[in-house]
Amino acid sequence: MAHDHGHSAPHHHGGDHDHGSDLAPVEARVRALESLLVEKGYVDPAALDALVEMYETKVGPHLGARVVARAWVDPAYRERLLADATPAIAELGIGGRGGEHMVVVENTPETHNMVVCTLCSCYPWPVLGLPPVWYKAPAYRARAVIDPRGVLEEFGVALPATTRIAVWDSTAETRFMVLPMRPAGTEGLTEEALASLVTRDAMIGTGLALAPGGKSKP
């Protein structure tokens, strides 16, 4: 912004000159699109604001973490979650757009699961919020499928050679979430404390749940 000043000579003459505001081209374009759609009655500005607020402040990985923690402490819930995830997640009051058909895949010592969207950036919004930048990048889309072990190493996750890696391709219809393994040494923890160990990446499958001390466990 600062480079806007200092080019033109006449800008120290008081408040009545044409020193206005600037909109970046993309900002002006989006405003144009929005004003046109409002004018035509397709969208309501208040509803747009509410949507933004919801995804900025309410929806995020802390919701998925609650689901994982519940599955860790309640075997019957875990079974319902793995059998039919959408209603099981709804039991905790979590659901909505982008989560109409959720599938939860469970990590075990034998199988590690990892989620990608090879087409674009489909992601389970109700439990994880909106995807991180790397999830939407071509490098991840391509390499998650070709070389998942290499991708995991870049994320600092080294799995035993005997652990099989399964890669799941999320689509607009079916969106996957990983149920990570419960870390060792967490037997006495409350459900809430357990949830705090569950990271976004652990539920995408590019990370593991944290150890109680706060460090990632192997």
Binding site: A24, V26, E27, V30, R31, L33, E34, L37, Y42, V43, D44, A47, L48, D49, L51, V52, Y55, E56, R97, G129, L130
Partner: peptide
């Protein structure tokens, strides 16, 4: 914030609302 700039949030909200 999942959005790097306000216009990103607006585009996201428009798409969701239109869907």
């Amino acid at each position: 914030s999942p959005f790097a700039a306000p216009w990103e949030a607006q585009v996201f909200a428009l798409v969701v609302a239109l869907q």
